[in-house]
Design a protein around this nucleic acid. Sequence first.
RNA 1: GCGGGCAUAGCUCAGUUGGUUAGAGCAUCAGAUUGUGAUUCUGAGGGUCGUGGGUUCGAGCCCCAUUGCUCGCCCCA
Length: 455
Amino acid sequence: MEKVSLARGTRDFGPAQMAKRSFIIDTIKKVFQQYGFQPLETPAMENLSTLQGKYGEEGDQLLFKILNSGDFLKNVNKKNIEEGNWKMVTGDIAEKGLRYDLTVPFARYVVMNRHEITFPFKRYQIQPVWRADRPQKGRYREFYQCDADVVGTNSLMCEAEIILMIKDAFNKLGILDYTIKVNHRGVLSGLAGLLSAAEKETSLFVAIDKLDKIGEQKVKEELIERGFDAASLPQLFEVLNFTGSTQNKINFLSSKFSNSEIGKKGLNDLNEVLNLLKNFGATDEHVELDLTLARGLSYYTGCIFEVKINRASVGSVSGGGRYDNLTAVFDSKEKSSGVGFSFGIDRLYDAMEELSLFPKETISTSKILIVHLDKESFHYSLKAAQTIRLNGIACEVYPDQTKIKKQMEYADKKNIPFVVVIGSEEIKTNLFTLKKMETGEQSKLTIEQIIKSIK
RNA sequence: GCGGGCAUAGCUCAGUUGGUUAGAGCAUCAGAUUGUGAUUCUGAGGGUCGUGGGUUCGAGCCCCAUUGCUCGCCCCA
């Protein structure tokens, strides 16, 4: 036999896994629809020009590129090949790539269809994305994202609704122990202001993001290494180490940000989101202001979200935020504000599996298998099957004429709960043997009675 | 891009300082049971020990290389 295998970082989803994945996807989809989001699908592949330059240099490296069809060498600059300048060659031999996330294709769609779209536009999108990353635990090269975004409004109600949708979805999925971490780009800038490090914001954010992972001492070392003034660090950590409720944190920060307009704006936004949450009749349970939350794509300009399932080892299962100028990368005149977030369902799956949160009855099979004993009863069983199906009960007939044992085994392995036995005796009397597989009990019933008892 | 670990039956894994014919459990198939699954009993099939080289009288085991998988780092869902 030829050795067959999967491409690295990809997975098959068998029936048992699909049942669980569908449970997650259907649940999330229902929540999105409940809040007025409409579905969108975009192609798996986009022009490379659409994708490149949107995710930073690192992101460009992680793009899967699609080799041009036909003679892909005809446009290659030979000098680039001779000099081993592979990055330049890439552009000559590939003009398409697999999508890296769902947000950029969405922005492309909005720009292309702005005249048809009714704003504010709320769309959800559940599709696979691809990254040429090195796979490891909870990290795949092909994985699904479930995005919901609103474009064309600055209302902070959207931020509040994102929190509500996360709560709704997790509640329905049975995930109870989780934390929705929120932060604000303005607050981060305010922090940078404390260090007078406005021009080194990014390296500050990257460093403090690691705080819970590598600890205060290591972060300090990294900051000093990156050229921050050691004398100003105590001020920063006084703020980062402040503990208290989200409201307390906001109040404390206000006193620190008296000189930072952008910092104050961030705090006001967060305050407003919390207020709106109250107006929705919801609490800020599970919501936590995390000043070290800084990761994610650099295009966020307002609130930032990230969701962690506590006691699960998969990292964040959802993330998002507001971006003021996403569509501007495709058209500088187009500056619609957008806000959105995404569930990583592969990680949700892993976390739910780890915590045994899947309901037992997620696998769907036929309710009835019709077992037949000879040619005549096989033919008879086809009509019976249709009658049962037309009454809304999933039913199948074993396709081959074979030993009853074999047919029963099939029902057992497929977890089909009922078996109907049809033989010459049954056809004569019009009473069929209904066997409940779980208990093994049997009774003789008409087809109508069988339908009634199972429905 | 950098570092660690692993690779033996379809799956999960044993395999003694290197020593005859490489094992177990599960799964598969057949029979016990020709109108009854899961449970029980009996039997059978299934292996180029990832690949290539080296050391040795002798390699699943030691050495080198290579490929694949896996776990971390960077980054990310």
